[in-house]
Nucleic acid binder design. Structure first.
Lengths: 333, 333
DNA sequence: TTGTACGCGTTATCAT
DNA sequence: ATGATAACGCGTACAA
């Protein structure tokens, strides 16, 4: 038989309201009573009914994470980060996968909120950019935080990394090593970060006084194959780059594969750099130098932002980190 | 303003209980009324309150997935599979990461159940083997299904793949290609599947009339480094294997790395096989031949088992699949 | 600082 | 096949 507040109150010799106060850590409870109540709760192994709390109160002690078609590793990082903050807050996490392109995404979101009465919602890219879903959230006055939104940055609180600076840092790192011909593979055009990373690459070149050479820049699509294709073209160039910087790690893995096939020694003959968006290539081919994307930290910060209940659209930027491995070296040519 | 059952019943001109019946797809509602009620629900965009349903009823329309320290990819497959079945059932999924080695895992599990009143629980390895957690579940009479349990198979319903057969299949495949010296790298000793896979390897050898050579078998620990180490030893052998079969893909990746370093042509000079437990190596090094572990299918089946509410400890075995790529070829030596 | 009475929105029980 | 009414276990509002 599950113990209820009534049982606790009887055992402790206080009113149910007092027990409720202790449970919710409200002020105005004497130390004396608090102890008695906590003792009784422990003795009965009292566990509050989430259902009753939701129904009676305003809060549900639950938040939802809505995520879409990202890589498993990315999603896992997101979940882990949010989870960590939720535990601190004593809040449960409802996982809600969803298709960002589905026409009834908005309905799903609306239904989720109306049914579960979650206290807040965290959106992970690319669901972050669904107008309809956001409208649904706004209409209900539901607090929400977006992680790495691609558009409409002023619309809600959000958390993201500084893609421009990250690409700039990596490019600068290569320049400092002495590279003058640095290839760059652009990410998928439908991803906002792609432009930002390209911009960071150009900014670093500019600052260093190196000319921007369009032929060293190839369009990719965030997948292994497009990385391979781009690398083939770049390495066939008359004055081939001594370093190639790919906008994500799947493409960087493609570059590495091509380098292997061509018998290029890494990093002596070619420096390869990327982002560890999915932390894949870096594990198998440790020689890849990467920008570590602070996914887990962003997620944690997003949850924190939600619980802090700040006013207006607060933006929080999380620092990235350059993981320099043996793969970047001074150019030999 | 959210619409309630009362609103719906008023609009439809029926009692609240009838609306409840329609909502829960109960029998004994005339087609006529059902239509009226459903019309009213749609018109008001009625969304039932999960909290109220839980409090009043016996079901919570929620199940929990408890998972531990698996690879992100594995966890993602699990979640995806369960989610798919939950959607069909109109049930929400509560994600509950947890440390399988934590002393208060049982308390967490108990608290989760008492607080959320979930309808059932799915345990994913290695949480599946926590005596204390299982006890807690049993004590409450909570239905649960385990995915790939390592021990105590009769204790609850469970779902798993046939590790013995899978390893047998792969080994047989190599034998059929003509390989007579097949190296094997054992998985981590604390993982039940390790023994089973070794057994499958031996069984295939036996059946083919090939002698089991202990020197072709090395102990590994499911990680990249142990795969490398084992490969170094195996390839240094006087009569080195013409094929190496690793018990998981991290180790197989290690084998591939060593082969690369030694300039061995794949698959001409060495065939490499593994399990895609984390589906990692197979993506980056397509030439790896693998046993595809049906993780998502197992998860789906686990949820199905839960919803079917079968009596006793039912075990369901999910079929694996041999993904043969260019990496296995007839031996050259 | 503590207690009382009521209501949250649904399902269960029992009646019809 | 349908309806009336009483729980479910907590938080809120107000009183003391």
């Amino acid at each position: 038989m599950r113990a209820t507040i009534k049982d606790v109150s009887a055992l402790a010799g206080v009113s149910t309201k007092t027990v409720s106060r202790v449970l919710n850590r409200e002020k105005y409870v004497s130390e004396d009573l608090r102890q008695r109540v906590e003792g009784a709760m422990a003795q009965l192994n009292f566990q509050p009914s989430a259902a009753a709390r939701m129904l009676a109160g305003k809060r549900s002690h639950q938040i939802a994470l809505i995520y879409g078609s990202q890589s498993p590793h990315y999603i896992h990082q997101i979940q882990t980060g949010i989870w960590a903050r939720c535990v601190e807050e004593g809040v449960r996490l409802l996982a809600q996968p969803s298709d960002p392109d589905s026409p009834d995404l908005a309905l799903e979101v609306g239904g989720l909120i109306d049914q579960t009465q979650v206290d807040g919602v965290i959106l992970s890219a690319p669901v972050t950019d669904s107008e309809a879903a956001l409208d649904e959230l706004d209409r209900r006055g539901m607090p929400y935080v977006r992680i790495s939104p691609g558009t409409d940055h002023g619309r809600s609180s959000s958390v993201s990394m500084d893609d421009v600076q990250a690409a700039d840092d990596m490019t600068s790192h290569l320049i400092e090593l002495g590279h003058k011909r640095i290839g760059f593979i652009i990410g998928h055009t439908n991803h906002a970060a792609s432009d930002l990373r390209l911009f960071g690459y150009r900014r670093a070149l500019d600052r260093a006084g190196l000319a921007y050479e369009p032929r060293y820049v190839r369009q990719g699509y965030f997948d292994f194959a497009s990385g391979e294709a781009a690398a083939e073209v770049l390495l066939d160039l008359p004055n081939a780059p001594t370093a190639i910087f790919a906008s994500n790690d799947d493409m960087a893995a493609g570059v590495l594969a091509v380098a292997h096939r061509r018998g290029l020694a890494l990093p002596e003959q070619l420096s390869v750099a990327g982002f560890d968006d999915i932390a894949l290539a870096g594990q198998i081919w440790p020689p890849l130098t990467t920008v570590r994307q602070p996914t887990r930290e962003m997620a944690y910060a997003a949850a924190a932002l939600l619980f802090e209940g700040v006013e207006g659209a607060v933006h929080r930027r999380i620092a990235h980190q350059l993981v320099v491995r043996a793969s970047t070296a001074a150019p030999s040519a």
